[in-house]
Computed example of a mutant assay.
Amino acid sequence: MLMTECLVTLKNATVRFDGPPVIDGINLTLNRGDIVTIIGPNGAGKTTLIKSILSIQKLSGGEIWLKPGARIGYVPQHLILQPTLPLSVRRFLMLTGEPEARCREALAQTGVSHLFDASIHHLSGGEKQRVLIARALARNPDLLVLDEPAQGVDINGQAALYDLIRTLRDQLQCGVIMISHDLHLVMAATDQVICLNQHICCSGRPEDISADPAFIETFGQQVAESLAVYHHHHNHQHTLHGDVVAGDGDACQHEDCHSHGTH
């Protein structure tokens, strides 16, 4: 299996409803092994772009190509469940139609196998996100699509989630595309950043993107300067709660981790 195998290609992809384009002229290639993060202000079209890749949203113009037979695992931004509906993690995962053994394996891959018989209504934010990721993993995806994977997770758990995403990419040899607002943390977890504001304003490696004039115009000089000095030497691992458990924690220059007592 080649890690450079192309999974998704968008050419001049455009989505328009009743007004100006929501996304306009997007060109994007995602290969197996890539972690691509979409950032941008509210209303920039990030979720519309993701829905187009998932074939939920039809393009108004341009083309999208998805590798034939590619399996996609999707982690939505929100999970809304009726609190009066009894639902265990086991039953939630089995709704994928995958065998119980595979559901257990997927839950173990996300580090929360002990939650298999727990009520999904009683999970913490970090636990719920890991169960959602496990649900996406149950199909052994070639492409993992995540919409705000750290939504509702405290600062101590966010770094652990992004560590998990990188680990899953390595284990599954899949491609990953995700939306994130956690600019500082996600810079340590991604290979390529795409700054979207209806069109692609700029794109590149995390260490380069903060110097791009389009990025500075979108997010401001103060954010760009903070990202420029925010270089995370990623040579350690985090627990479910964000604590460092392996590697040389002293080499980590993760300022938010230091300021919040994570390291």
Rank of each mutant, 00 (worst) to 15 (best):
G175E: 01
N31F: 07
E255H: 14
A188C: 04
R166I: 00
G175I: 08
A224W: 01
Q171H: 13
I133K: 04
L107W: 03
W65Y: 12
D24C: 08
V131E: 04
H233R: 13
P76S: 03
R139V: 15
H254K: 05
R71F: 05
P141K: 06
T47P: 00
K51V: 10
N27F: 05
S113T: 05
C201P: 13
H258S: 13
Q82S: 15
P83C: 06
D212R: 04
T9Y: 08
P76Q: 02
D191V: 02
A106W: 02
M94G: 10
R91F: 11
T47L: 00
A70W: 05
L93E: 01
C257I: 08
I120E: 10
S52N: 08
E217A: 13
P149W: 00
Y230A: 05
A118Q: 11
G242H: 04
C201I: 15
I35M: 10
G242T: 07
P21G: 00
P21R: 00
G249A: 15
M1T: 07
I120G: 12
V223H: 01
H263N: 05
H181C: 06
N197P: 07
E255N: 14
T110L: 01
Q77E: 09
Q222D: 14
H122D: 15
I216T: 05
C174Y: 07
S52T: 15
L161H: 02
R91S: 14
P141G: 01
K58V: 14
L185F: 05
G33D: 00
L7W: 02
S210Y: 10
Q192I: 07
F92P: 05
G61R: 01
R130Y: 00
F219C: 10
L183W: 01
L185N: 10
Q253C: 11
